[in-house]
């Protein structure tokens, strides 16, 4: 389907869901409310017209001064129909997002990375621990209020530490 057809079908398929569908630079975009997200995911994967069977990416955007602080951005792709969809969800700092790992299994490590970098919680996730950083790390480094020069080394740093051998 073309992006315009995807937007039209989203409008007729989910009339009550409160979606904000539009075409942005040849790409179908929908802004979805948090509470209907899980239902939306299942429908997008299982519906024979959509069939978004490949979960490509999930990332987040930190708008520091905006009222719901984060955007969580999903990218979906259909290997059957060769079309794409971007889903944006606005969440505040403490509100969890329903996990997509029950619908697409690959969402599991990607959501762990988003938790690692932004500190966004995913409810229903089987193992929400840090993926890339180490367990001793305090805070979430890609947040805009993380100090840019803050360092958290594991080993004690001495400089210079060369012994004359």
């Amino acid at each position: 389907m073309t992006p315009e057809e995807i937007v039209g079908r989203l409008n007729e398929h989910f009339p009550q869901a409160g979606l904000d569908n539009r075409v942005d630079k040849d790409h179908a975009v929908t802004v979805a409310p948090v509470d209907r997200l899980e239902e939306l995911f299942r429908e997008l994967r299982d519906d024979s017209e959509f069939r978004f069977d490949l979960f490509m990416d999930i990332t987040a955007v930190d708008w520091l001064e905006r009222a719901p602080r984060f955007d969580v951005v999903y990218h979906l792709y259909s290997t059957v129909h060769n079309h794409r969809l971007r889903i944006k969800v606005m969440v505040s700092e403490n509100k969890p997002v329903p996990s997509a790992s029950g619908v697409w299994v690959v969402a599991d490590p990607m959501e762990r990375e988003v938790w690692d970098m932004y500190g966004i919680k995913f409810s229903g996730h089987p193992n929400l621990t840090r993926l890339l950083l180490y367990e001793e790390f305090k805070g979430h480094p890609l947040r805009k209020d993380y100090p840019y020069d803050k360092r958290q080394p594991i080993l004690e740093e001495t400089w210079p530490s060369r012994d004359q051998g």
Binding site: Y148, R151, P153, E157, T158, W159, S161, D163
Partner: peptide
């Protein structure tokens, strides 16, 4: 940045 060691001479002799 937050993740990179600024030279290995901070933890061992080079």
């Amino acid at each position: 940045n937050y993740a990179t060691l600024q030279g290995i001479d901070r933890i061992l002799p080079v």
